[in-house]
């Protein structure tokens, strides 16, 4: 009886102290990394939350200025512009390049950071993109390969006709760096969403795990499903982001590094992982590997899950995916 009373009073005190806490949820969005980046921060101090968002925005801008192949002053632009020469880079660019090589090795080059020259030929950002000739693609694909990147201390060198492009991992990498800033500032709960590459920690405004909808690329008013996560990342790769139709054939931006052609194995791949860079890169890799090979790879990795919609619309799940509060549809 006394034990029950003791337990009840403890719960009451806890509930009371918890309920006295005033939390603010701040939302902010900014166009960064070639997409809309969304920040949600839940914290007990309005000013600290506001400053932390500003710092997170600055961090993503800083990373973008280092790794974007389209910014003249970026380190990646300079590496690509100086083939055959070692270019001194920051610790962040070096870290991203080394991690990309590790992931390329893990995925047997389904994820490749050296596809820059091939993507440049496809030019999906052009007003009227056109499929490059097979001869050009064949020649460029021969130059692709993470093992050809050379490292010397804090410098990186690429071969002639090879270009780095971190499009398959850069957003995730930048999100992870921004999350580190928020955590360092003591933020209790936050979510950063860079065009579908999401990391969240703590709890949402309802005191529950963050509820993430996985969009159905073919039916805009319906979802493929929902996951509920905390201190976890989720990223999705789909063939609907940048694409065009030429002579009745659909071409999209996720290329098979071995052929230089768009991978036709999947429609959508969603990956859950402990870091956003891993989720981002694996989503791209599985898109190229295909549903069965991709799920097989994910099953060998700890705390990593995947959900794949293959080219025929069939759904594939890794064993633990549904443990993340997955509910299908609506």
């Amino acid at each position: 009886m006394s034990l029950t009373l003791l337990l009840c009073s403890f719960l009451l005190i806890f509930r009371q102290s918890f309920s006295q806490e005033t939390l603010f949820q701040l939302e902010h969005e900014e166009f960064l990394l070639g997409t809309l980046v969304e920040f949600k921060v839940i914290h007990d101090d309005f000013g600290e939350a506001q400053n932390s968002i500003l710092q997170a925005v600055s961090e993503i801008q800083r990373i973008e200025n280092l790794i974007s192949p389209y910014i003249f002053s970026s380190e990646v632009y300079q590496i690509n512009a100086n083939p055959g020469k070692f270019v001194k880079v920051s610790s962040e660019t070096l870290e991203l390049c080394q991690k990309s090589c590790e992931l390329a090795k893990l995925t047997n080059s389904a994820f490749e950071p050296t596809l820059g020259a091939v993507l440049e030929k496809w030019n999906f950002n052009a007003l009227e993109p056109k499929k490059p000739s097979q001869e050009i693609l064949d020649a460029l694909v021969k130059k692709v390969g993470y093992s050809k990147i050379q490292f010397k201390n804090d410098s990186i060198k690429v071969d002639f006709e090879m270009k780095l492009d971190f499009g398959g991992i850069g957003k995730g990498f930048a999100v992870d760096k921004a999350i580190l800033i928020l955590k360092k500032n003591g933020i209790k709960s936050a979510l950063i969403n860079a065009g579908g590459d999401i990391f969240c920690f703590g709890k949402n405004s309802e005191g529950k795990k963050w509820k993430i909808g996985i969009k159905n690329p073919e039916k805009s008013d319906k979802n493929l499903g929902t996951v509920e996560i905390s201190d976890f990342a989720v990223a999705t790769s789909g063939n609907y982001e940048r694409n065009f139709v030429e002579n009745g054939i659909f071409y999209h931006h996720i290329l098979n590094p071995k052929t230089g052609l768009p991978s036709q194995t999947c429609k959508s791949v969603t990956v859950l992982a402990k870091t956003c860079e891993l989720a981002d890169a694996l989503a791209t890799a599985i898109f190229v590997l295909g549903a069965e090979n991709g799920i097989e790879l994910v099953e060998t990795l700890e705390k990593t899950e995947a959900f794949v919609v293959d080219g025929n619309g069939n759904l594939f799940f890794s064993k633990g995916f549904k443990d993340f509060g997955f509910s299908e549809g609506f």
């Binding site: 969304e38 949600k40 979510l191 969403n193 579908g196 590459d197 999401i198 969240c200 949402n204 963050w210 509820k211 993430i212 909808g213 996985i214 969009k215 690329p217 979802n223 929902t226 989720v234 990223a235 999705t236 789909g238 609907y240 969603t270 609506f330």
Partner: peptide, 8 residues
């Protein structure tokens, strides 16, 4: 339906 974010 209320979500905190969408991945796509």
């Amino acid at each position: 339906n209320e979500f905190d974010a969408f991945t796509l």
